[in-house]
Every structure is written in structure tokens, then in C-alpha cells.
Design a binder for these strands. Structure first.
Lengths: 236, 236
DNA sequence: CGGGTTATTGAGGGGCATCAAACCTCGTGG
DNA sequence: CCACGAGGTTTGATGCCCCTCAATAACCCG
């Protein structure tokens, strides 16, 4: 299973922000804007709940889960991100984050200060529009994904999750038919609103029906059509 | 139960876009931008799935449900909006809407062309930021709301829904303790991912415990603390 | 007042949570 | 190198919540 790392900035969601600098002096320009790179070992947090964020994070490799801790103390995974995607969009709301972003696998990222985003947006309206477009896109696809989750049974939810991961990995230029799922059964369960055991049984079922090939965290999508049927299945 | 209508533009989410015109010539400026008002009877659509949207809609009164029709033909409510809120945010993504927006109660709205939004944003960066902030805010609160739904039982889901409605009505300047819910049990059920019967049973239960006073569609929040406890209840 | 839609209430069955135990995986240290 | 242990995963048995089907009741509008 190849490691999933962006081979450059071209597939990055925030490409527009960085690429807009003059090519010859790009590095200097990016440094002046405060853009920096970093790495994160498994289990470490990109940011914590309550923290006042002033940057977006573009993932170069790895995977992140955003965890919400409720008043009662229970935690649940409210969002997952993979290479090529942006974490910390909620920071644009200008209030402390209510979620913590934890590395599920070793992760490399670019940190892009909000000030840089704002500066580039102001001098290049196209970038502002692009950001807006990205937000709206993310919003409506999240809405659809969630609504498809809430109405369906366990196997369909897992199918939808796998398809979603596949689509998003492909968007970043990876192989969407065969990939290693960084997230544990427990994380997936939390994200999908069910128990670890039920997620496991769903994977077993999909494997038995030869729709997926499941080898622990390594997945192969054998029959994408059937997977899509399951995910879109209308219970009503 | 008083009708819920914004008494002006001050509580409108898109106030920034319109209010930024010169006061003396505001009407003319707004007309030039293509901002217009309209009304919608019950059951009529603000826009249809597949339609290419070129405007945002700010609700002056009434309530809207956004319905997603799946490949299989089944429909589900993926979003609800009340007076003071904006419908059609997905149009910022620049592709045809996948949802239809249907009036649940008689609705009055302002139609604000995207061109107007872009024009104002360009000449006033503050407005662009405000829009971005609004999007991010909407996104993260939707995320939290949904994640609280997905993990909880029927009574908690309904409690969370009622609280959410209450909060949003208050934000627009209405009474959040006592209001008429425009949405039918069926709509609520679809939105919350359960059946009409279960929603009904949940309301009955909340009424029996005197946490809500339920008279068909008229609700009174008797013990908001307990309601919040239920909504935030951590099953795990 | 009557027809149609919407809401409520009841009885029964199925899917998922829960509890429990065995198995696998992988890093750690002997 | 392998034994060991801790966490992750799978599988099984049982009970409960919610969906389904069905009937009655309330509401709304002509």
C-alpha cells in the first residue's frame, strides 16, 4: 500500500492562495506571508478545543480526525480529513474552535495564517471567490453525506463512508480503488454514529458479498456500482 | 401565536450586503444591484433541484425546507430555514443545486443576485469577510448539530431540534420560548432521520414530562435546562 | 358539516446496542 | 528472536429501541 503524499502543491485545496505569488520569488513571498510546514506524529493534535485559531492547515499527507467533546464529557468524531484537504475551516468563523484535530496517522501539513489568506484574497478577488466556492462545496456535500447517513442502516452507512473516502482520495490524486484506511473501527463508528462492533460486522458483510476486499485497514473496492447502490439505497 | 416577520433589515443575515450602499440612494442602489422582494405560498418552491442558481435568498418571514431527491427517488429534508436566515448558500459552489427549497409556511423573501454579492464584496472587503465568517459559522454549527443527532435516541434528537429552532428564532429577534413550528411531523422526522410516529411519541413524552408544552404545532419551552440536558446527553 | 390530510396511539417484529469472550496485530523488552 | 502485553478487531448471545403496519382521533379548509 503506497503512502499517500501529495507530490507537490498542485492538488492542494489551497493551491490558489500560495500559487498566486510571483513564481521567481515564491519561496520568499510565502515565507513573508508566514506559511510554514510541519509534521505531526500519531495521536498528537494540530489544535485543541478552545484554542483561538489563526491559521488554516493544508494536509500534505496523513489523516486527521476532528473530535468534539460534549458538556457531558463524551467525545465524538465530527469530521475526518485526508491528504489534499484543509483542516480548521471553522477558524474562519472567528471564534475558538470547539473541536480538537488529532492525527490518526503520521501527518505532514502546511500552516497558512489567516492573515495570509486575507492578504492574498484582498489583492486577488479570484482567490476569495475560490475560497468561498470551496466552502460552499464542502458545505453542501457534507450536508448530503450526512443526510444519507442518518436515514440508512449500518451496512449502507459504511458503504457511504468508504465511497466518500474513495472519492476524496481520488480528488487528491490517489488511487480510490485501493487504499489504506487510517481510521480505526472505533473512529469510524463514532463518525457514523454507531458502535465499533456494528462497523466491524458491516465490513465483514461487505467482504462476504465480495463488494469490498477487507484486510484489516486495507481496502479494495471490488464492485463500486454495488457499493454506490448500497450507499444511495432509499430505505423509504 | 404572533406571526414571525422581520420588522426591518437589521436582523437579516445579509444585512451587510445591502446596508453597505449609501443611505440616501439605497433604494436606487439596491434596485440597480437587482435586489428584489417576493412572496411564496405554502408548497411552492423557491428553487428546484437541477436549477442553476444565481442568487441568495434572505427570508423575511415564513419557513423553508430543502429537500434532496435521491437516485432511488426517495426524498429527505436536509435543511430547514426560518426568518432571518439565508437559503441557497450552496449556489455559491457554482454548480446546479441538488436540493429543492419548498415553502413550509407562507414566506416572504429578498432575492439578492450573486452578482450583487460579488460586486459589494469586491468594493468592500469587510463584507466578503463577513460572508465567509457566516459560512464558516453555519458550517461548524451544522456539524455539531448533526453529530449530536446521529448519536442519540429519538427524544434527544427532538429535544435538540426544538432547541436549535429556539436558538435560531431568537437570533432573528423572535421569542424562542414560545413559537409555532411550521414543519409537519413528517418533515421533522425526515430531517432527524426517523419516522413520523417516533417524532410524535417523542413530543408526547416531552409533553408528559412537562419539559415542553405541546399543542399540535405550538410549542412552549417549559424547562429549557432539562431540554438542554437531553439534547447534550452523552449516550456513551 | 364532511372529506382529506395530519397526528396520535397501539401491537409486533427486526436491527442495532450491549455485554462478553476469543483472536489478531504490533511494538517492547527480555 | 521470541515472549509478552495492550489495544484493536472479530464473532456470538441477549435485550431494547425504533420501524412497520394498522386503526383511531384531531385538525383544517371548503
Amino acid at each position: 500500500m503506497p503512502e499517500q503524499t501529495l507530490d507537490g502543491c498542485r492538488r492542494c485545496s489551497l493551491h490558489g492562495v500560495c500559487a498566486n505569488q510571483d513564481a521567481p520569488r515564491r519561496d520568499a513571498a510565502l515565507r513573508r506571508l508566514g506559511v510554514s510546514r510541519g509534521t505531526l506524529p500519531v495521536g498528537r493534535a494540530l489544535f485543541h478545543a478552545g484554542q483561538n485559531l489563526d491559521a488554516l492547515f493544508a494536509l500534505r499527507s496523513g489523516s486527521i480526525k476532528e473530535v468534539l467533546t460534549r458538556p457531558g464529557g463524551s467525545e465524538s468524531v465530527v469530521h475526518v480529513s485526508v491528504a489534499g484537504e484543509v483542516v480548521g475551516i471553522a477558524s474562519l468563523a472567528g471564534r475558538p474552535s470547539r473541536t480538537s484535530a488529532v492525527a490518526v496517522t503520521a501527518t505532514r501539513y502546511c500552516r497558512i495564517p489567516l492573515a495570509a489568506v486575507a492578504a492574498v484574497s484582498n489583492e486577488t478577488p479570484g482567490v476569495a471567490h475560490e475560497l468561498m466556492r470551496m466552502l460552499a462545496e464542502k458545505m453542501s456535500s457534507a450536508q448530503e453525506f450526512v443526510s444519507s447517513l442518518i436515514e440508512q442502516d449500518a451496512v449502507s452507512r459504511v458503504a457511504a463512508f468508504v465511497l466518500d473516502m474513495s472519492t476524496r482520495l481520488e480528488r487528491a490524486g490517489f488511487n480510490g480503488d485501493r487504499f489504506r484506511l487510517g481510521f480505526s473501527r472505533r473512529d469510524i463508528a463514532s463518525y457514523l454514529g454507531m458502535t465499533m462492533e456494528t462497523v466491524s460486522r458491516a465490513f465483514t458483510e461487505l467482504n462476504r458479498r465480495r463488494i469490498l476486499d477487507v484486510r484489516a485497514k486495507d481496502l479494495a473496492l471490488l464492485r463500486i456500482g454495488d457499493l454506490r447502490l448500497l450507499a444511495d439505497a432509499a430505505t423509504t
